[in-house]
Design a protein around this nucleic acid. Structure first.
Length: 584
RNA sequence: CGGGGUGUAGCGCAGCUUGGUUAGCGCGCCACGUUCGGGACGUGGAGGCCGGGAGUUCAAAUCUCCCCACCCCGACCA
C-alpha cells in the first residue's frame, strides 16, 4: 500500500447519499469523472474485473460465445428497428465530420441480429447464443446514487437465436439458470420477479432484483411463498363470485356535496335510509370509474373507462403495462364536453355497461366479480347509486389489473400477505420473439427449404451496477465487506510498529508466503502511519480477512481478524499461511 | 420537466444577510524532530479563476441576471 494509487477519505463525500456510493468513494475504489460517469481506481478496477470475470466464466461454462461490438454505431440499424425514434432523448446521438448520424449504443439488439443475418442462414446453425460485455450509454435524465444509475455503465448482454418457440423457451431457461449461478457466486442476493403480466399474452420476461432500499424498482413479494412480481405485473387474487338472489335492489340516492370518496362514505353511513344493516359502507365498497384515452400505435384514439374499488387509485403504469403498446393520455375537459353521457365525478356503469354509447371501452378490476355490490355514480350530477350489483345490474367489456397494489394484499398463489419492497435491477431476461428478426430480415432456411424468421431472446446483466449492489448489500459502520470471490484481495496484512521494528519485515515475508500459496495479498507497509489509521483503512477497504503483524510478534503470533464477524484470534506465525488457505 | 437545497484548496466546512486590506478553519499533503495497537504532537511550508459568464459598483466570494454541476422530492425512464 506504500505505492498503491489510493487515498482514503476520512469523511463521507458530501454528494453521496447511498452507502455504496459513499463507501466506494471514501475507500478509494472510484472517483466521479463526469455527470453519471466514474473512474475506476486500482482497488475498484480489481473488484470490477473480478465481477466481470465471474460473469464471463459462467457464460462460457454454459457454452455461450463472447463477441465484442463497437459502442459507436451508425443510425441505419436503429432506423430499421424503429428505435432511432423510439429511444427519444434517452440515447446519445453524435454526428461525424460529414454530418452522418451515429449513436452511442444503449443496447445492441439490432447489431446482434444483423451479425447473425450476415453469417448464418440455415436452421442447422441454430440454436446460437452470443454475448458481449460492453459499455452502454443512456442519457438518463437524472443519474444518481453513484454506480447504481449512471449514464455510462457496463452490461453483459447476450442474445439467443432459435428456430422454434420451444427452442427459445430452452434458451431462456438456460439463461435463467446461468444468472442464478452467477449471482450466487457474486454473493448477491436476488429475487426473480415477473416483469410483464400475462395479459399481453406475449413473451416471458423476468427481472433479477437485488433487494435494497436504495433501489428504484418497486416490487411485491409474498411473505409466505416465493411469489414475487414487479408491481406492474402483479396478478391479484380473484375472489369467487357471490350469489346475489337475495341482494337488495339498486337504490339511487341524492348525495350532495360529496366531492371525494370519503365524504360520500360518511354521508351514506350517516343517513338512516342509506345505511347498511350488517356493516358500515367503506371506501372499498365504492366503485370508482376513471376515464382515460388510449392512443394505439396506428394513431387510433379510444376512450377507456376503468372501474376499480374506491379505496384504490388507478396505477397508470400498471394499466399501460397491460395495454401496451398503446399509450395512455389524460381525458381532458374537452373530451368530457364531447362525451355528454360521461358525467364527471358521477360516472357509473349505467353509462358504460350494456347499452352504452359506442366508442367507450369499459374494463373492470378483477375484484369486481359477479354478485358484489357497489356504491357508484348514477350518471347524474349529485346522485349515486347503492347496491349496484355486478352481473345483475351492470357488465363490462372485460377485466384489467390497473388498481394500485397495496401492502397486505393477498398473494395470488397462496393467499398470504404480499409486501411491497424495493430493489435494483441487476439482470433482465426477456423473450423478444421475432420483433427484431422481422424488422431486420433475419431468416434461415428450415428442413423444407423454406425461409423461417428466427426467434430471439435478450438477456442483460449489469456488471458495473452489480459492483455497486454488492457494496450496497455488504457493508457496516466501519466500511465495506466484500464477498471473498470479488474482494480486491484475499488477505489484508497490516504491519504495525516503528520503522525499525521487526514487524514490517515479518509482514513482508508473510505476504510473500501467502502469495506463493496462491493468495492475493494487500500489504499495508506504510511507514510512519499510526496503527489506528491502518486498522481503520483496512476495515474501510473491506478485504474479508485482515492479518495484523503487531505486538504479538515477539511471542511468534499474529492476529487474524474476520472482517465480517469482527472475530479475531491470535495465530502462531508458522500456521498462518495454512489457516488462511483454508478460508478460501 | 416542476419544487427545494448546495457549489469557497484533494476532502469536510465557515465567510455572503449588512460589498472594503493579503479569503479562513479542520483533515489530508511536503520538510525536520518526537511518537508508534484504534484516525498522535511540535515547528515550518505548499496548495484557491470563491462553479462559469455577463452586469451593478471606486471596489464583488458577498448584490443582480443567465448558464453549468451536484443533492433531495415529484414527473419521466430501463
Amino acid at each position: 500500500m506504500s505505492t498503491l494509487f489510493l487515498r482514503t477519505l476520512r469523511e463521507d463525500p458530501a454528494d453521496a447519499e447511498v452507502a455504496s456510493h459513499r463507501l466506494l468513494v471514501r475507500a478509494g475504489y472510484i472517483r466521479r469523472a463526469a455527470p453519471g460517469g466514474f473512474t475506476w481506481l486500482p482497488l475498484g478496477w480489481i473488484v470490477y474485473s473480478n465481477v466481470e470475470r465471474i460473469v464471463r466464466e459462467e457464460m462460457d461454462r454454459a457454452g455461450f460465445q463472447e463477441v465484442h461490438f463497437p459502442a459507436l454505431l451508425p443510425r441505419e440499424p436503429y432506423e430499421l428497428s424503429g428505435r432511432w425514434a423510439d429511444y427519444g432523448d434517452n440515447v446519445f446521438r453524435v454526428k461525424d465530420r460529414r454530418g452522418a448520424d451515429f449513436l452511442l449504443a444503449p443496447t445492441h439488439e439490432e447489431m446482434f441480429t444483423l451479425l447473425v443475418k450476415d453469417l448464418y442462414n440455415s436452421y442447422k446453425d441454430l440454436p446460437l447464443v452470443i454475448y458481449q460485455i460492453q459499455t452502454k450509454f443512456r442519457d438518463e435524465p437524472r443519474p444518481r446514487a453513484g454506480l447504481l444509475r449512471g449514464r455510462e455503465f457496463v452490461m453483459k448482454d447476450s442474445y439467443s437465436f432459435d428456430l422454434t418457440d420451444e427452442g427459445l423457451d430452452e434458451s431462456y431457461r438456460r439463461h435463467r439458470v446461468v444468472y442464478e449461478r452467477t449471482f450466487d457466486r457474486l454473493g448477491l442476493p436476488y429475487v426473480i420477479v415477473s416483469a410483464m403480466s400475462g395479459a399481453m399474452g406475449g413473451s416471458a420476461s423476468e427481472e433479477f432484483l437485488a433487494p435494497l432500499d436504495a433501489g428504484e424498482d418497486t416490487y411485491v413479494r409474498c411473505t409466505n411463498c416465493d411469489y414475487a412480481a414487479n408491481t406492474e405485473a402483479v396478478r391479484i387474487a380473484v375472489p369467487p363470485p357471490v350469489p346475489y338472489d337475495s341482494a337488495p335492489p339498486a337504490l339511487v340516492a341524492d348525495t350532495p356535496d360529496t366531492p371525494t370518496i370519503d365524504t360520500l362514505v360518511d354521508l351514506i353511513n350517516g343517513r338512516d335510509d342509506l345505511r347498511r344493516g350488517d356493516r358500515e359502507w367503506t371506501a372499498a365498497d365504492t366503485l370508482k370509474n376513471v376515464v382515460v384515452k388510449l392512443r394505439h400505435p396506428d394513431g387510433r384514439i379510444e376512450a377507456l373507462a376503468v372501474g376499480v374499488p374506491g379505496d384504490r387509485e388507478v396505477d397508470l403504469k400498471r394499466l399501460e403495462a397491460q395495454l401496451g403498446p398503446a399509450e395512455i393520455l389524460p381525458f381532458t375537459e374537452d373530451d368530457f364536453t364531447a362525451n355528454k353521457h360521461l358525467v364527471k365525478g358521477y360516472i357509473g356503469p349505467g353509462a358504460l355497461g350494456a347499452g352504452k354509447p359506442a366508442g367507450v371501452t369499459y374494463l373492470l378490476d378483477p375484484r369486481i366479480v359477479d354478485g358484489t355490490q357497489w356504491v357508484t355514480g348514477a350518471d347524474q350530477p349529485g346522485r349515486h347509486v347503492l347496491y349496484l350489483t355486478a352481473g345483475r345490474d351492470f357488465t363490462a367489456d372485460g377485466t384489467v389489473e390497473a388498481a394500485e397494489v397495496s401492502d397486505g394484499d393477498p398473494c395470488p398463489v397462496c393467499g398470504s400477505r404480499l409486501e411491497i419492497a424495493r430493489g435494483i435491477e441487476i439482470g433482465h431476461i426477456f423473450q423478444l420473439g421475432r420483433k427484431y428478426a422481422d424488422a431486420l430480415g433475419l431468416t434461415v432456411l428450415d428442413q423444407n427449404g423454406k425461409q423461417q424468421v428466427v426467434t430471439m431472446g435478450s438477456y442483460g446483466l449489469g456488471v458495473s451496477r452489480a459492483v455497486a449492489a454488492i457494496a450496497e448489500l455488504n457493508n457496516d459502520e466501519q466500511g465495506l465487506i466484500w464477498p471473498r470471490e470479488v474482494a480486491p484481495a484475499d488477505v489484508h496484512i497490516v504491519a504495525t510498529g516503528k520503522p525499525d521494528d521487526p514487524q514490517l519485515p515479518a509482514a513482508e515475508k508473510l505476504a510473500g508466503e501467502c502469495e506463493a500459496a496462491g493468495m492475493r495479498v494487500l500489504l499495508d507497509d506504510r511507514v510512519g502511519v499510526s496503527p489506528g489509521i491502518k486498522f481503520n483503512d483496512a476495515e474501510l477497504i473491506g478485504v474479508p480477512t485482515i492479518v495484523v503483524v503487531g505486538r504479538g510478534l515477539v511471542q511468534g503470533t499474529v492476529e487474524v481478524k474476520d472482517r465480517r464477524s469482527g472475530e479475531r484470534r491470535e495465530v502462531a506465525l508458522q500456521d498462518v499461511v495454512a489457516e488462511l488457505g483454508l478460508l478460501r
